[in-house]
Design a protein around this nucleic acid. Structure first.
Lengths: 112, 112
DNA sequence: GCCCTACGTTTTGTTTTGGAACTTATGACA
DNA sequence: TGTCATAAGTTCCAAAACAAAACGTAGGGC
């Protein structure tokens, strides 16, 4: 089964995953919850490539999880802010954070 | 940044995602919470290929999220059951389920 | 003019995934 | 005894996704 086919799955978990079901997308959300909103901030913080970042942001905007916002008109600059829909996933990330703290201790030196 | 490098990230969310941060892994967990435990059950329910399923199960066992259990000695058959560590992610899936119900209505006929 | 910032896009090569057939060990049936 | 069914994987190849790094664009500051 492919990525895209998941969006019409009978299971609501699967449909959710069709939007946020990958590592990078969830890291973007994490950054949003930490107050980040800019392309460069996401790129640096998460360590993902700009290629993938651009694609995921586009998808999150299409799905109404983030909103693309003009924050400077000359030169034109856009950033990304959470919608109410996006805010409602925050508790899921909170659980993952607590789980990581409890069950996934850092073994070597952190990088990013 | 690569998959594997995430496991030593400074961020506990990232470390959690290094284990469960992909679509298929989370669908396996969903099935576990629904009471499934067998290879064939996961394969049929989620629609993922057996190839990927085998790999993800192996990883979940290595990480202590699932336990591989001999449930028949002749012929030898193993299934997979949640550990306490695995149980503790259940609330995150619950949030995704509710979010999917609210924000991701089914548009076409469901398949699996 | 020339370098800097910041949001992307393009390109090229590697890695991961999808799909489908195959394997192994045993039980059930005739 | 042979044949079929079951269940947990493994193997193979082509297709899709990804990583890394350079490039594009539209201004601003000096």
């Amino acid at each position: 089964m492919k990525w895209s086919e998941l969006s019409d799955n009978w299971c609501p978990v699967a449909r959710t995953l069709s939007v946020v079901g990958d590592r990078w997308t969830l890291l973007i959300l994490r950054d949003c919850y930490l107050g980040k909103s800019k392309f460069e901030e996401f790129a640096e913080s998460s360590g993902m490539t700009r290629h993938i970042l651009a694609e995921r942001l586009k998808r999150l905007v299409e799905e109404g999880v983030l909103e693309r916002r003009l924050y400077s008109s000359a030169p034109k600059r856009y950033d990304y802010v959470l919608t109410e829909k996006g805010e409602e996933l925050r508790p899921a990330l909170k659980i993952m954070k607590d789980w990581g703290k409890k069950h996934m201790p850092v073994r070597r030196e952190a990088k990013a």
